[in-house]
């Protein structure tokens, strides 16, 4: 039971470390305050994830992606978070694409340690397919 409970909550050491980093060094945090914050953070994840999964169910999708999380944050009143995370995801996707291109150019199996997620692959293929427009046959006639 203890292990199950712990698995369902974020580790309290990480929570307290972030609190200490953001607050001035003179500030002290009570043990009770850390535990309450741990529970709040856990509930925050459930709150946001529940909203995102509801949206996916409505759209008959089975995978939650980053955009769904951003949408959930904005709909729940955390607009500033949604904007920041949107920018973060944009940079993340750029980095992933650069990795893919780098791997394809050199074709070195050692470099391909982290396989890219299928979503990115599908997007890249779509872009390639869209790039060459079909030539109209009327031009010849």
């Amino acid at each position: 039971m203890d292990q199950d409970e712990q698995d369902r909550a974020l580790p309290i050491a990480n929570v307290s470390r972030i609190m200490k980093q953001i607050l001035p060094p003179s500030a002290k945090i009570s043990k009770e305050g850390k535990q309450v914050m741990q529970e709040c953070v856990t509930e925050f994840i459930s709150f946001v994830t529940g909203e995102a999964s509801d949206k996916c169910h409505k759209e008959n999708r089975k995978t939650v992606n980053g955009d769904d999380i951003c949408w959930a944050l904005s709909s729940l009143g955390f607009d500033n978070y949604a904007e920041a995370i949107g920018r973060y995801l944009h940079k993340y996707r750029q980095a992933e694409r650069e990795k893919i291109n780098h791997d394809k150019k050199y074709e070195n199996p050692h470099i391909n340690r982290a396989p890219p997620p299928p979503l990115l692959l599908s997007r890249v293929t779509r872009d390639k397919v869209e790039n060459p427009p079909p030539s109209p046959p009327n031009q010849s006639g």
């Binding site: 369902r8 994830t49 980053g66 978070y81």
Partner: peptide
């Protein structure tokens, strides 16, 4: 693991995990 506990049938992409990780950090701060 926490998200799976919330809705076992739902799948979560790597992007979503990163987004939630950052969101929680900002919320906590």
């Amino acid at each position: 693991t926490m998200i799976k506990g919330e809705d076992p049938d739902m799948r979560v992409s790597q992007e979503a995990l990163l987004a939630i990780n950052n969101a929680v950090e900002k919320f906590l701060e």
